[in-house]
């Protein structure tokens, strides 16, 4: 691109306005290196824009500058207040002028020791930060893998092959929300837990199959809560499934006082 091309293209203006994509930005930068006279032109555009923004400037209501000067990450040994620092520096200069060479050397020695200390401390902090960052990365990877597995599970079960059945919660557990995804084609169902009551120590949830007047048949135990899919067994031609809270290890017959709800499968 020639100098005239750049000037007539309007790229300089867009560059200063931050409206160029990466490719055009590198074109402009290359042109600025090739034609140093463009730099002055770009500066003129930038100054014009600065003046324009300045003419539309507004004063924040809050004490933003105080917050900035209070909260900026301070390097070790720095004063928080620039004006105070200025005074301190000035006082130090006055004081130091009266010291002898020995005092100066002692000061330098102490400063060097302090510098080494600060450096060692910074290295230690850096090392800790790196370790912590690594842990966070690993945790993030684990969570990502879990989320991906869950997403894959969801994708596989939310098809026509699965019939969702909501629980009819008992009065004692009226807030319970759980869905049974009835697989029409295999011998496995899923429970999609949305909200279940808190379990006491030594308790577990138990799934039951109920067919006709027969005694409920004990099935899977689970204690998961929150959003998630739980693979459970399936009984063909069952009239209903139920969930109750039982002692850890499960029971052979359901505790009717702690019956959470029933999934009616008939129909």
């Amino acid at each position: 691109m020639t100098l005239a091309d750049i000037r007539s293209s309007g790229l300089l203006e867009l560059y200063a306005l931050g409206q160029l994509d990466a490719h055009d930005q590198s074109e402009v930068r290359a042109a600025l290196r090739r034609y140093p006279e463009l730099v002055a032109e770009l500066r003129e555009i930038e100054i014009a824009l600065y003046r324009y923004a300045e003419s539309h400037g507004l004063t924040p209501e809050g004490d933003v500058v105080e917050k900035i000067l209070r909260d900026y990450p301070k390097p070790p040994g720095r004063s928080a207040d620039p004006s105070r620092e200025s005074i301190t520096t000035s006082e130090n200069k006055t004081a130091s002028s009266g010291r002898g060479l020995r005092g100066l050397l002692s000061g330098l020695f102490l400063a060097a020791i302090a510098g080494i200390g600060v450096y060692a401390w910074q290295q230690s902090e850096l090392s800790e930060a790196r370790a912590s960052h690594q842990l966070e990365l690993e945790e993030c990877d684990t969570k990502t893998a879990t989320a991906q597995a869950y997403a894959a599970q969801l994708e596989s079960v939310f098809t026509d092959q699965y019939r969702p059945v909501d629980i009819s919660a008992t009065e004692a557990y009226a807030s319970a929300r759980i869905e049974l995804l009835d697989d029409q084609a295999s011998n496995q169902n899923y429970l999609r837990v949305i909200d279940l009551p808190e379990l006491a120590e030594g308790e577990t949830f138990q799934l039951w199959s109920i067919t006709g007047d027969n005694a409920p048949v004990p099935m899977d135990l689970f204690d998961e809560k929150g959003n998630g899919l739980i693979a459970v067994g399936k009984v063909n031609a069952t009239d209903a499934y139920a969930i109750s809270i039982e002692p850890a290890g499960g029971s052979t017959s359901p505790n009717m006082d702690k019956l959470v709800g029933v999934f009616a499968m008939a129909g």
């Binding site: 600065y50 923004a53 300045e54 539309h56 400037g57 507004l58 004063t59 924040p60 933003v64 500058v65 900035i68 000067l69 900026y72 720095r78 004063s79 928080a80 207040d81 620039p82 620092e85 200025s86």
Partner: peptide
Amino acid sequence: PKGLRAAYDKYGKALYG
């Protein structure tokens, strides 16, 4: 931090606008 203060004094209002 004097640099921070000076930058804010010069450009703070234009940026805030």
